[in-house]
Design a binder for these strands. Structure first.
Lengths: 219, 219
DNA sequence: GATTGACAACATACCCATCAGTATGTTTCT
DNA sequence: AGAAACATACTGATGGGTATGTTGTCAATC
């Protein structure tokens, strides 16, 4: 009822807050970021934030939710396809690895929070919200787990312990978050190439030696 | 000159502070940890901390230094050996992966800080201290890089981009920090077995397919 | 079509708890 | 006695949260 007409709407206001929060959480971590920081990052004040989000932890949760939404959307098409395990994994992995490169802000904010939960216990925000997020994360991992399991049973993968293999593969695909610095002149093609190399290594780690990828995949 | 005699010295006082700091930084992150938290964790007060360390960031730096010292000590024997590239990598990787499991507190504190630097820029502590740490970290990575390069040139590894392969391998070996929860009944043997599975996957990711490890390594 | 009023969408100003750092004791050993 | 090894008490600044003010927009009414 109060859409800013059709002036020159850059982006919806709540999403601007989310973007600013993601950027700040990425740069300085959740605890290290003040709401004044977030507000300053978008040229506003705290009033703007509290108008849309009830608290700091709620804002974090919204950022995480947004990030997870992106992640699910990225791999779902491949997951729902009827490809064979190895090829399905390749498609999902490629989409995910590429996604990690492209949405660094949200993903780093998410992983920073995730890291603290795993390691610490009951910190970093409301517990109910955190639990909800853990459930999402679990569902996401299970999509990959399914494919690994299917591939193991069909003999296409050579996996010893599913859990270890799953974490290793996902960690590999996520690894760009920890070392890839976005260049100013990097094209979409570059990013896809990086993702593809990671996918190849992940596939080899899973023991899927018997496939030469035909150079082009999931165009 | 002031060693606490030979009473029942559990541990040197400064190291107690380091341990407490590492534990707190692991649980709640650097920014999320107050020095009162650290003090409370060892049943003392801030006076104790400031008696040995000049500031919070200096304390963080000491924790990182300590962690890096452990890391170097873990892989140096294998690095200085005259093993062939693949076997040298296996030995280094095994030692490192095991080390990550055993020294979780220091390592998580270290990686939390590392993560913020990579992603953020000039935060999380004094910049000179941070630069010193980055140098250490670089030197550590280079030890693995050397072995990868040697293995690539000798044809023992099948690596496309050294940098990507290096990060993938290290990330895999570090990955336990993000998912392995130390059980109460886990023996040293268990930990070594987990490490070994990761090493095998890392080796396969590096294209070192042509070796069946003879079940026992670096005893 | 001008007026009004109600509400969204913020900004400003303020409150209070927390926290890094300091200044000053107090104890214990040598 | 003097210094190491702390504890206690305090300070200034920061930050999450709140309370209140201000502005623009739209819809009903006149």
């Amino acid at each position: 009822m109060n859409l800013p007409a059709a002036h020159k709407t850059a982006k919806a206001a709540p999403e601007q807050v989310l973007d600013a929060a993601a950027a700040c959480f990425m740069e300085k971590g959740y605890a290290g970021t003040s709401l004044d920081d977030v507000a300053r990052h978008m040229g506003a004040t705290k009033g703007r934030i509290y108008h849309y989000f009830g608290s700091k932890s709620e804002l974090l949760h919204a950022v995480r939710k947004h990030a997870m939404g992106i992640n699910f959307a990225a791999i779902r098409p491949a997951y729902n396809s009827d490809l064979a395990p190895v090829e399905k994994f390749r498609a999902m992995a490629q989409a995910h690895a590429y996604n990690m490169i492209k949405e660094q802000a949200y993903q780093k904010a998410l992983f920073g929070s995730l890291h603290l939960h795993i390691t610490g216990g009951k910190n970093a925000g409301n517990d109910a919200l955190m639990q909800d997020f853990i459930t999402d994360r679990r569902a996401f991992e299970d999509m990959f787990r399914d494919v690994l399991q299917a591939g193991q049973e069909s003999g296409d993968f050579d996996i010893k312990t599913i859990s270890y293999a799953l974490h290793t593969a996902l960690t590999t695909l996520n690894s760009t978050l920890y070392w890839y610095t976005p260049r100013d002149g990097d094209t979409d093609k570059d990013r896809r190439a990086v993702a593809q190399e990671l996918v190849e290594m992940a596939l080899r780690a899973l023991g899927a030696c018997h496939n030469q990828n035909p150079k082009g995949n999931t165009p």
